[in-house]
Design a protein around this nucleic acid. Structure first.
Lengths: 166, 166
DNA sequence: TTTAGAATGTCAACAAGGCTGACGTAGTTT
DNA sequence: AAACTACGTCAGCCTTGTTGACATTCTAAA
């Protein structure tokens, strides 16, 4: 209720023109969002798919293959191609589940953790700059809108990720 | 300066943890963002690349091939493959430039405009729902952060698009 | 007026990363 | 013992990106 420029109280922010601006903002911003990690990955034989796998394994160590599948929303064949190269290159290791031996619990090796750090440092640097420029209140709004834009299942993934019990 | 919950004035919003949340929010939200148009496109022989071309041609009718290339950030060979199918299917037409006859000015046909409408209706519906849920102030912040996240050139594209002079 | 350069199209070949379908092997559960 | 689950894998296909080379047409500059 504080910022009143351009009709905050009215419904003017729901016009097609405003929505289009939001749509294009998502498009252009996502490019920036992926640009820095992409630059690191290129030449290393890895792509965005590897980045995503590494990110979420780092995020929730001990995660099983099938929960990773659920988060990434791809087929097991597709994920497997990625995971295989990560195993072969010694970035990720799979430990047989303790209670259920069919499960593969995924962990980053030191080498994998190093790459993860390089990638997320780059990505966070941009994020941090954007956050700092925009300020805390804008960041709050940013997160709120993004969350509202997710599919319900994805929102659960987003909110509910926690370290998988080993 | 109004909203003070959870340390707006401090720098707590710049912690790695907060940044990671932002990063994952972008990831999951982008999935939702593209989900609805993707559903429409699937089965129609078209993909996201066609959607993007159609979107920007609609946005700035009379746009040349090279400015579209600049916006999309792909190679001409890649764009051409997409444009060719759009020409062949009668969704887009190219008119020879008036002053410079080398240029192809791109326009949607009625058929193309109809598909554009279907796609953007779907995408806007989700956007509108998210905006409405989040409220005008959040939307303001959303746009601010996204803009700060773009590469400078992309920010220019984002801000500077206008109807190309015929 | 030639000539260089720009805007566009196109052929070919390749790679990443999606997908489906089918099948195999452990290990768990009933 | 039988059925189900978690995972891996082979094969083949699609979209969409890439590079490199070359042709055409038009514009602009020397």
């Amino acid at each position: 209720m504080a910022d009143n420029a351009s009709g905050s109280d009215s419904l003017l922010f729901l016009t097609d023109e405003q929505l289009r601006k939001g749509i294009e903002a998502m498009f252009f911003a996502y490019r920036g969002f992926t640009a820095d990690p992409d630059r690191i990955l290129e030449g290393l034989d890895y792509g965005r798919a590897h980045h995503r796998a590494i990110h979420f394994i780092h995020r929730a160590p001990g995660m099983t293959v099938s929960s990773l599948l659920g988060i990434l929303g791809v087929t097991k064949q597709s994920l497997n191609r990625v995971l295989r190269t990560l195993f072969d290159d010694g970035l990720v290791e799979a430990r047989v589940g303790k209670t259920d031996k069919r499960e593969r619990r995924l962990h980053l090796t030191d080498k994998g953790a190093a790459l993860e750090r390089a990638l997320s440092d780059a990505q966070r640097a941009r994020m941090r700059a954007a956050y700092r420029t925009a300020g805390p209140q804008a960041v709050q709004g940013f997160r709120t809108v993004l969350e509202a834009m997710m599919d319900p299942e994805m929102r659960r993934q987003y909110q509910g990720l926690r370290e998988d019990s080993p």
